[in-house]
Amino acid sequence: MSSESAVTGARRASGWALLVSELSVLFRRRRTNALLLALAAIPILIAVALRLSSSGPRAGRGPPFLDQVAQNGLFVGVTALVVAIPLFLPLTVGVVAGDTIAGEASHGTLRYLLVAPAGRARLLAVKYIGAAAFCVVAVLVVVVTGTLVGAALFPVGPVTLLSGDTIPVGEAFARFLAIAGYVTVSLLGLSAIGLFFSTLTDVPVGAMAATITFSVATQILGALPQLEGLHPWLFSHYWLAFADLLRQPISWESFGDNALLQVGYIALFGALALGRFLTRDVLS
């Protein structure tokens, strides 16, 4: 009995150690930093281009919120998110999530990880938490860089919401953070899909490409009006509904719907990944 609980304790401790090392390896990796830099470049490019152009954008042209930037720099972050959500964010998430298991396998380090007494299920959980942590950081990088660059290059003032109401800067920050949370949650389903693809192969590029392709294909399906019945089931369905947090009063409904949908995807693809990973022969 006591030896059994000792083993469980050792596994748990080993799981925590694994998580700490996973996170430090992930965020020290040059590729991760390059991805985050690329994401930070989006708001910087938008802000600098707008600052340099003599004529401001006309209302209703270009990405949403773009015309607001010249009057209020705080909108740079939101505009950058709108631009990054369809492709750039899924791209970076696909790279990180697709690499989780397949990357270790291709380096030949997977079996050493499994030698640690954490167990395969814990290793998978640790890998997923690592990918989720990247989602948090990636979205924050876009929003925070955007806000800082916008504040540096443009005037900052009370923020006009979609409903036409105006809120003070402090409340606006809180709402932007809520939006960052919303977009992070939106990406968790895709991370689980990437994790599953990563357990299928020893070639990380294959898993990354599959994840990104899946994301693009899903968004194409979401754009076809003929498939309307399918749309609420697509993980990208609520991606742009983060704008509900910019209405007055705030509508939390899409936040809840989105979270529920993503939990469904995490459960489904997490289970598939677990089923695959527990029974897989690890040879490398």
Binding site: A59, G60, P64, F65, D67, Q68, V82, L162, S163, G164, L240, A241, A243, D244, R247, S251
Partner: peptide
């Protein structure tokens, strides 16, 4: 409030005043 994707159309009536607001072209 007509909720569009990333936009909103508003009609506000208060007494005799009526406002129409469109967030897309900000008019």
């Amino acid at each position: 409030q007509v909720l569009d994707q990333l936009a909103e159309r508003n009609i506000v009536r208060s007494g005799g005043d009526v406002w129409f607001y469109d967030s897309e072209d900000r008019t």
